[in-house]
Write a protein that binds this DNA or RNA. Structure first.
Lengths: 198, 198
DNA sequence: TTACGATACGGAGCGGTGTTCCGCTTTGTC
DNA sequence: GACAAAGCGGAACACCGCTCCGTATCGTAA
C-alpha cells in the first residue's frame, strides 16, 4: 500500500483541485462549528459556514463520524503517540498511565459533545467509536500491561473497558459545575492500585 | 402526609373517568414500548400502541421526563427506600453502600436507554435528571456519611458526583459485550476505600 | 331523560433535522 | 475552444417533536 489514503487526511491522488479546496474549507468550518454547537451540530449549519451545499459534505464525509474523525485526527494521533513517550519518561509505568489518561480526558472534555458521541450507537457515529478504540486501545493496553508487570496495579482490567468507562465519565461535564469527571477517574485509578476487591 | 399528589401517581381529584383510564393505558403502553425501543422511542409509537392521539400524551405528560418518571416511579421509590433498610441490616455501612449501588445499577442497566437519558440535557429530559437526583441523592449521601463515619472510606466524595458517575458508567451497556459497567463501579468503590490519593 | 357546559380527545400542521438525488457548473485535457 | 468527467448545490422526501383547535365525550342539573 503506497499511499496514506483512508478517509479525510491526505489528498488521495487524482482529485480535482476545487474538491480538495472544499475538503479543507469544510474541515475548518466543521472545527469551528464543533466548538460552538458541539459535534452534533446540524449538517446545514456546517455547510452554511463553509459556504457549500450539503451534497458536498456527504460526498467528502459520508457519515458524521468521518467528519469528526477528520477534524480531530491530529489530536487523537498525538494522544496515541504520547503513550510510549510517557512510558519511557515517567517515574513509573503507573505514573505514565495516569498522565496518559489525563491527556485523554483533557481532549474529551474540551470537545463539546464528543464523549457523548463516542458511545452513541445511533446515527453515523458508530465509526467514530471504532476509530477511537482501534487507535487508542493498544496504547492503553501497553500502559496497563507495563503497570501490571511492575506490580503497581492489579491484573485483569481490560483496556477497552477502562477507556470506555473513562469516556463515559466525561459525558455531560458542562451541564453541572458540581460534576468533575477527573475526581471520579482518580478514584478509579486508586481502585486499580488495590490488590484485590473483597 | 395524607395524600401522594405530585404528578403521575394517584388520581388527583376530579378528573374525568375516561381521562384516568387513558392515563393508565398510556403508562402500560409506554412501559412496553420502552422495553423494546428504549426511553426515547417516538411519541407517535407510544400513542399508537396505546390507541390514543398524541395530544393525549402531551396533556397527561407534558414532557418526556414526566412519562418516564411515571413509568418508573415505583422502582425508583423502592430503590430509595432500600437505602436505610440496607444500612440497618448490612454488616457495615460500606457493605450497605455497595449493595445499594448494586440495586441502582441493576435498575439502570435493565432500562434500555435510561442511563443515557439521565444526563441528556436536551429535550424534555431535564426533569428526569432532577427527579432522580432529588429522590436518590439524599439516600446516597446518608450511606456515604455512614461509611465515612465508620472510617471505611475516605471523606470528601460528593454524593451527586458519585451517582452521576455511576449513571454515566451505565450508558450503552448493550452495545458491546466487552463492556460491563459493574466491574468499573467495583473499581470505583475500591478506590473509595483507599485512604488518600497521591 | 334530556340538555348543556366543561373536559378531554385526535390528528393535521408547523418547524427542524438527516439523507438522497439529479440537473447544472466547473475542471482538466485534447 | 470543445467536450467528457468530476463535482456541486439545494430541492425534495422521510421522520420527529410539539402545538392547536374543531369535535366527541362526560358529568350534572333540570
Amino acid at each position: 500500500m503506497p499511499s496514506a489514503s483512508q478517509s479525510g487526511e491526505v489528498p488521495a491522488r487524482s482529485k480535482r483541485a476545487d474538491a480538495l479546496r472544499n475538503q479543507q474549507t469544510l474541515l475548518a468550518a466543521a472545527a469551528e462549528v464543533f466548538v460552538t454547537s458541539g459535534v452534533d451540530a446540524p449538517i446545514r449549519e456546517i455547510a452554511a459556514k463553509a459556504g457549500v451545499g450539503m451534497g458536498t459534505i456527504y460526498r467528502n464525509f459520508p457519515t458524521r463520524a468521518d467528519l469528526v474523525v477528520a477534524v480531530y485526527r491530529h489530536q487523537v494521533e498525538a494522544c496515541a503517540e504520547a503513550g510510549p513517550v510517557l512510558l519511557a519518561g515517567a517515574d513509573s509505568p503507573f505514573a505514565a498511565l495516569r498522565q496518559w489518561i489525563g491527556l485523554f480526558v483533557d481532549f474529551l472534555v474540551t470537545k463539546h459533545g464528543l464523549a457523548g458521541a463516542l458511545q452513541s450507537d445511533s446515527s453515523g457515529f458508530a465509526a467514530l467509536h471504532t476509530y477511537f478504540v482501534e487507535r487508542l486501545e493498544p496504547v492503553c493496553a501497553q500502559l496497563l500491561d507495563a503497570a501490571v508487570a511492575a506490580g503497581e496495579i492489579r491484573p485483569g482490567t481490560q483496556p477497552y473497558e477502562l477507556m470506555r468507562g473513562i469516556g463515559n465519565l466525561c459525558i455531560g461535564r458542562d451541564s453541572d459545575p458540581r460534576y468533575d469527571p477527573r475526581r471520579l477517574i482518580g478514584l478509579l485509578l486508586d481502585g486499580l492500585q488495590q490488590p484485590r476487591s473483597p
